[in-house]
Amino acid sequence: MNFYHYAAPATFYPLAGKLWPWFAAIAALLGLIGLYIGFVVAPTDAQQGEVYRVIFIHVPAAWMSMFIYLVMAGYCALGLAFKTRLSAMMASALAPTGAMFTFVALWTGALWGKPTWGTWWAWDARMTSELILLFLYLGFIALQSAIEDPRRADRAGAVLALVGVVNIPIIYFSVKWWNTLHQGASVSLTAAPKMAETMLWGMLIMALAAWAYAIAMSLLRVRAIIIERERQTEWLVEALEAER
């Protein structure tokens, strides 16, 4: 497979069109399995009671919020370095989904925090840096939409996204570096998981569902962006005709 071949919008557009339904189907299937495990199979938590079931979306959403940002910044770097149109479009396509997952992580965290910690919100390092992540996503989207010329919008957005990367390790390590209200990592690559196996499986399956959802959404969105930006081209008119 030639990577450069698929880096052209004209070849990526139909490929993305073929791929997104698969990822959407995987997301729906894994989401249903994850919810079944989360609500039916997984037992009540001995310490937290039922409210812990929020983690089946909270943790995957928080992971995705950080991971999507890294992928987005990676595409931004590629776009800046090689001036490839498609990588800049992929970065713009990822931002709204990343913002959505960041909002979900904050929202579910607040709803979990109230009955567990007794507060919706605290200005601790983990929560504050996650809130900054939401502002970085929103700032990236706002900045790009404020600039008329797409190439300049790509460049300005890329600089913002790359400067903001510094926030990701701050979020990830905040619970280690500082004394936060937010607890430490529930799952780690180096230590045995601190939770029951069924709970862990439910969470991992939900995380995979979130992955598939994010891929489906960004493929769909990059197709819309290609239509917006390549509309003077002959191939696009033909591709749209073929889809009808």
Partner: peptide, 26 residues
């Protein structure tokens, strides 16, 4: 959910809602 239904369902419903909003906007 042991008296925590509002928090749990509030989390899941809002998550579903923002996903639907994202799809509609797209």
């Amino acid at each position: 959910l042991g008296g925590h239904g509002l928090y749990v369902w509030g989390s899941y419903l809002v998550t579903a809602l923002v996903m639907v909003v994202e799809i509609v906007l797209l």
